[in-house]
Design a protein around this nucleic acid. Structure first.
Length: 409
DNA sequence: TCTGGGGTCCTAGGACCC
DNA sequence: TCTGGGGTCCTAGGACCC
């Protein structure tokens, strides 16, 4: 029998902002941007939640619900920094740690009783240690599976610790809404409601063959989850098995929709650079480049192209992205544009000598650029965008291939 | 309600191969 | 020419999570 903790930070972004600006304490706070901006709420303080404000709500709507809230811009670097601090505390507590997102983690503490005492005592120690070392409130769920631990920490909020004893999983889950199961969203919830299933207990009472017939593979996993099991996919994997990312992407929503080619091109160039940089950071190469377009009416399209040769070079990403864009853009104003790298590999694969030489030259230059950006800031160097003037010829002579013969500056 | 940005996983059709 | 059955890769879209 395993013992797993799920640690979830309470109103994480808001709590971090309050460390930097204590005047925000005790007030309704909305993190995400100015209320007149395009965007959604990233996090809302408990005081703001009382007015119906919650994450993913459009900022304008949040403002209507709670005009007296303080609206602040998010600071991703601060959140990453504090996420690392939390990680360090957890690491010290147990070697089997896995950050599930920026503000939540699983740790396995099976067999640490001699060190930390029984589960509930251990969790309280950890709970207090996180608070004292980071200044942040958190909640901890304790259970025999990741699934129940996660649902448990949610029930423990705010600032609580809750333990579901082994064997009591079904009883704990039964009265909860099906929506509490991670993976059951709006759509699945509605489908389940149509079948008269509202509580997890209703789900547990069903024949799993019925669910499989109705929902396929997902139905089978659902049947297991209703019983508190880590059924299917990611939940099933051991805590702490580090995994490389499967895709890297960046996207941008314009303040105002645009049909300006120059603006669209420089945005795609910037996004390509950001994706390329992250690929190099992870020492990964992409074989499939995808763009995403969203028009004013919110209709959204993706178009992908797979390369013969995996890459991590900004200009290759840009060439492919821009070509996909030109082939698919209707000419109507664009709301959002994105660049996505999938099919990630650890090597670039087979190359011929000549191509290899070009690639090496670019990689070397870009590594230097990455270092400059580390030192002088993200906007200090822009390689792809600076090629804008020469870009048209480049596309014709070398549609989706490697960089041209000229040396990068 | 006027809807961000970064991800994961699943489905489904068509190409292509044996 | 009426026409099988897998397996795998590619592409597009969608549900869902934080």
């Amino acid at each position: 029998m395993k013992t797993i903790f799920h640690i979830d930070m309470d109103a994480f972004f808001v709590s971090v902002e309050r460390l930097f600006d204590p005047t925000l304490i005790g007030k309704p706070v909305v993190v995400g941007g100015r209320p007149d901006q395009r965007g959604v709420v990233s996090a809302a303080s408990y005081e703001a939640r009382k007015f119906g404000v919650h994450s993913a709500l459009p900022l304008r709507t949040a403002y209507k619900l709670c005009p007296h809230a303080t609206f602040v811009d998010g600071h991703p670097h601060r959140y990453r920094e504090y996420s690392h601090k939390v990680h360090d505390v957890l690491q010290e507590f147990s070697p089997k740690v896995e950050m599930a997102s920026i503000d939540e983690a699983y740790i396995e503490v099976t067999g640490t009783e001699r060190l930390h005492g029984p589960p509930l005592k251990a969790a309280h120690t950890l709970h207090e240690r996180i608070r004292s070392k980071t200044g942040l409130a958190n909640s901890i769920g304790i259970a025999s599976s990741r699934l129940v631990a996660k649902i448990c920490s949610d029930q423990a909020k705010p600032n609580g610790v809750l333990w579901v004893l082994p064997g009591q999983e079904g009883r704990f889950l039964a009265p909860l809404d099906v929506r509490k199961i991670p993976g059951v969203g709006k759509v699945t919830e509605k489908q389940l409601h149509l079948l008269g299933i509202r509580k997890i207990g209703d789900l547990a009472a069903l024949d799993e063959r019925f669910l499989e017939q109705r929902f396929g593979k997902w139905g089978l996993a659902l049947a297991g989850k209703a019983l508190g099991l880590d059924a299917g996919g990611w939940f099933d994997s051991p805590v702490g098995a580090h995994e490389e990312p499967k895709s890297i992407s960046h996207e941008h929503t314009f303040g105002t929709d645009t049909a300006d080619r120059g603006q669209l091109h420089s945005t795609i160039a910037r996004l390509s650079e950001m994706v390329g940089r992250r690929l190099r950071e992870h020492k990964l190469f992409t074989r499939t480049v995808q763009i995403k377009l969203r028009y004013s009416d919110f209709s959204t399209f993706t178009r992908a192209h797979s390369l013969d040769q995996a890459t991590q070079i900004d200009t290759v990403l840009l060439n492919v992205s821009w070509k996909l864009f030109e082939q698919n853009w209707t000419g109507k104003p664009i709301r959002l544009i994105g660049v996505h790298a999938g099919n990630l590999e650890e090597t670039e694969g087979q190359t011929n000598l000549l191509a290899q030489e070009h690639t090496d030259r670019w990689t070397k230059a870009l590594t230097t650029v990455d270092k400059l950006r580390d030192k002088f800031g993200e906007n200090s160097v822009s390689l792809a965008a600076s090629l804008k003037g020469r870009f048209r010829e480049r596309v014709h002579e070398n549609p989706v291939g490697l960089p041209g013969k000229s040396k990068p500056k």
